[in-house]
Structures are given as C-alpha cells and as structure tokens.
Design a binder for these strands. Structure first.
Lengths: 285, 285
DNA sequence: CTACTTTACGGTATGCGTAAGCATT
DNA sequence: AATGCTTACGCATACCGTAAAGTAG
C-alpha cells in the first residue's frame, strides 16, 4: 500500500516544480525528497520522473499520478474532518431558544440530564426552527408556537407574560394594566438578545425608541440609575426578582402572552425522553 | 495526515472483530496493533474504541471511521491500478488483425518503427474493430474493408487472394481456376487463427468438413503427409513459399479476394504517421 | 485454562539531516 | 557563482516483536 506521505510529496513537487522548492514547503530536506520519489517509483514499478543531471520533471504518467494523488489527499483530509464532525454530532446537543426565559429555565435541566454532552445554545427568533431541526442544525428547540410538521415532536413546557417596569414617578405605573399602543413613542430600555420578542416589539410599537443594551450588566446598571421603563416578565415577578423601587404593570395584549413548546425530531424523541418526562406546562412560569 | 497503514489496520480490526485476529491477517504482532489503534485515536483526538479489561470494540464513531477507511483504501488501490494501466497504455500498442497475412507483414514494420513499445497483437474477425478502436482497446487495426466512421483514419495497405493447394493426384488440381462451390463438401485442412476468412468459409462452403489445426507446425506436418487440400494465398505464392509437391489453383470468387486497410483514430494519426508513410497499396501482397 | 488486551523492554529498520560532489545556467 | 539533483554517511525515532502480566469467560 502506497503511503500518503509519498503522495503528498509527489503532489507538492508537482505543484512547485523542483524538489528544492517542494522540500522547503514540506519542511524536510531536499535529499529526503529525492529518496522518497525514488521509493515511490520503486513501489509502483513505474517511471514517474525524467531525470536530467541537474533537472527533474514528471513523465506523463507522473503527472497523471500527481493529479490522482491530489484527489486521494483531499479525500484523506475529508476523512479527518468528517469523522471529527460525526463524533462531535454524537456528543453535542444544539438547542435553539426563541426567548431568554426558556433558556434560563431549560439550561440547568438539560445540563443535568445530558451531563457529559456538550450543550450548545443559540437564541434567535424562531421562524426557522422547524427547518433547523429537520436539517439537524438543532437537536432541540423551544418555540413559542406549536409546530405542525409531522416529523417533529413537541410538548408544551410553560408560558410567559410580559410586564412593563416603571420607576415610581412614572404616571403609567399606576394603571392596573396597559396595552402596547399606550407605550408607542416612549423610550424604552431593552436587552438585545430577546429572541422572538424583538419582532413583536418592532411590529407593535414602531414609534418607540429602543435603547438597546448588549450586555446584561450594563442593562441593569442603566435601569437601576435611570427612569427609563423596561420590559420584565412573569418569570421574574413569580420569583420576586424584580428591580427594587420599580412598579410592574401587566401588558394585556394577546401578543404579550405566549406558551412555550419543547420540540425535537419525532425520530429522536426516545433520545430526549427523560427531558420530555420532566418538563410540563408549568416548567417555564 | 493519517497514514493508510493505520486505516488498513482499523479496517481489518473492524472486519475481524479482535486485535488478535486482525494481527494474524495483517502478519504483524498483536501488541503492534494495540499501539497503532491508540496512535490513531491520538492523531484524530477522538475515542474510536471502547476498552474493557479484556475486550476491545468500536464506538459509533469508530465504526463510521472504519467504513470510511475502507472507502479510502479502495481508492488508494485504484490509484495503483489506474496509474499502472495508464502507464501501460502509454507504452503499448494494441493491434487488431483481421487475417494472418497482414500480421505477418505488419509486425516487423511496427516493431521496427515503435521499438521500445510493447506491441500486443490480436487476430479475429474484424466486425468490431471500429468499436474497439473508438474505445481505445486497439490503437491500430488491419481491416478488410474501408471503415466509414469519420473519427477513424485509414489507408489501403495491400491485398490478398486465396488459392487452393492440392496434392498432385487430385483431379481439381488441373483446373486453371476454381470456385468455392466446387469445393463444398470436401474435407479441407485449415488453420484455426485465420480471422475473417473463417466467416467466409462457413458461409460459402457450409457442407465442407474442416479439419481445424490450432498449431501451425501440426498443420504443416499433416499437409505435407496427406492428400487433404488446404488454403494458401497470393502472399505465399508471390514468395514461392508454397508446399513442395503441391499445385495451387486460384479461387475466382470475389469473396476470395480482399483489400486491406490500416486504421487508427483520426485524432491519433500524427502518432502513427511514420507507419502510414511507409505503408502503401503493395505492402501486403 | 484459554482467549484477549495492555504494558514493558530492547532491537532494528526506516526516515531524516548534513556534507560533499557534480552538472547546468 | 548560484541553483538543483544525487550519493554517502551517521543518527534519531518510530515501528516492531518478544516477554510478561492482568482479566474475563
């Protein structure tokens, strides 16, 4: 069996034209290459080179061999990358979250159940979650709608309501409930990674000015020391994790309430059985 | 770059199930295999094996790797065979002859002009010579008809007439010429490798009994010591290489006369230019 | 007790680099 | 002189086999 080392050297010589140049590229000495190429010819029992006293070039067969060698080398590299990718796919679970609160709740559960696996989380609007699951980009997803594709398996795993958080001086803070239209035009402090909620805001309060904060720490910092209203959610209110000195008013629009669904490929539901067994309607609350 | 040696060993282990068995097949010691497989895992940085104290088996990734390795190994073997076949094709000329006399004449010419090349001759009925030239099975052919395919290049290179050779006592020996129908029913001594002539005989003298001789020496032996008529040809008569004590009578049927054509691919006529230049209408005569 | 794997040890062959020589431009 | 290939020589490492130990059936 011809070793790939020799083919690599042949291909490099073909590319660079001289043994010296090839040797430099390959980080080996030039005499070593001389020997290797001779060995290759010996093993094949075929003349691959035309030897001048001071010059080496490939025969027609040599050229053909070098080109074929390149193909083989590419496939050999594929071998490594594909095997690594396959192994990785066996040991990692990629999860798509449509909002931050589901991630907050599910992450510890998943880490616990699938300890030893690498968990890779992704948060964004969930328009393409169905496709991503079908394509194997995600193994699990939390959506804010119940998927209808019959190749997908899903279970309701909680819900969330949006609230507005006002500082005490704000006149809106005294309403028992509010609607998004009441907020349109306000300047509102907002965290950037909020999944599908972002779409909803853009749509329902097009005239509001959102002060986007990428980092949670700076978001809290600014919220604590300013009068800007912010969004909060039933999740935090249920846990009394609200900002001190702020008043939370429920948003009554239907768009400000959502159910959440845990989704996987129907063909893989066995694999994620434990997780589905633990999860119920009140998991995210 | 992963060396094929390791992949070969992996594939063998996959096939035979234990290191010991694989080692035996590979003609190496079993501890060597242990190390190789460990090395393979190291180089990939991936677990391929599940190790019990007394048992070794492949992980899912390991199985995948072994299967992929098999593909690579097959391609590597292809490399060798294809390169060798290509090299051979550069150094050999395969020639199809439709009859023995053209071979007698052309062989020395071709050997002379293409010295250093391996010449491979083949004689049979020329029905498929056009296809075989187009497919690269032959580089040259001698046909007994002028090919019409425009991808082929041809030149008339001679002709041949058949004669019957009778022993002196035979009454047919005194005719100035004969027709095949006059021979139908006779027992005739015949060499087996006579190309397209065989078809003609079968067709025109269906009732003759042919005493087929495979070896030329036994053909001559029997011809010399028996009364059986044989075929001979203008080629031998022109050279006075006829059998002693025999009388040769020309066969007057049109089927017993043929022209010969030297043929090659039109795209390769340059390559065989010298030969075509030497050859003319009287080369085979 | 047999079959299999792993570890340890020591030898050898294979591959490599340096040095030197020769030819070509 | 500079560039490029080959040969010769000595070394390091990588690979291999034998021996031995441990474990499971």
């Amino acid at each position: 069996m011809i070793e790939l080392r020799l083919l690599k050297q042949l291909a490099t010589f073909y590319e660079y034209g001289t043994l010296s140049a090839a040797a430099e590229v390959l980080l080996i000495s030039q005499p070593t290459l001389t020997r290797s190429m001779k060995q290759l010819e010996d093993e094949l029992g075929i003349k691959l080179f035309i030897r001048g006293k001071n010059h080496l070039s490939l025969t027609a067969t040599g050229v053909r061999a070098a080109e074929y060698a390149n193909q083989l080398l590419n496939l050999a590299e594929d071998f490594e990358t594909k095997i690594k990718a396959y192994d990785r796919s066996l040991h990692t679970i990629s999860i798509g979250y449509c909002a931050p609160v589901p991630q907050l709740v599910m992450m510890p559960l998943i880490n616990n159940i699938f300890s030893g696996m690498t968990i890779s989380s992704d948060m964004k609007s969930d328009e393409k979650f169905e496709d991503n699951l079908l394509q194997g980009i995600y193994q699990l997803a939390i959506t804010h709608y119940e998927p209808e594709n019959e190749k997908l398996f899903s279970k309701k795993c909680g819900s969330e309501s949006l609230y507005m958080s006002f500082s005490q001086g704000n006149p809106l803070a005294f309403y028992p409930q509010l609607y998004l239209k009441d907020l349109d035009g306000l300047s509102i402090l907002l965290l950037s990674q909020i999944g599908f909620w972002a779409d909803m805001h853009r749509e329902k309060t097009p005239n509001s000015k959102y002060l986007l904060q990428i980092e949670e720490s700076s978001f809290i910092e600014i919220a604590a020391h300013s009068e800007y209203p912010t969004f909060t959610s039933s999740y935090f209110i249920n846990r009394n994790e609200t900002m001190p000195g702020r008043i939370n008013v429920k948003l009554a629009d239907p768009e400000c309430y959502t159910d959440y669904y845990l989704v996987c490929l129907d063909s893989e539901k066995k694999k994620y059985e434990k997780l589905f067994n633990i999860v119920n309607e009140n998991t995210i609350k």
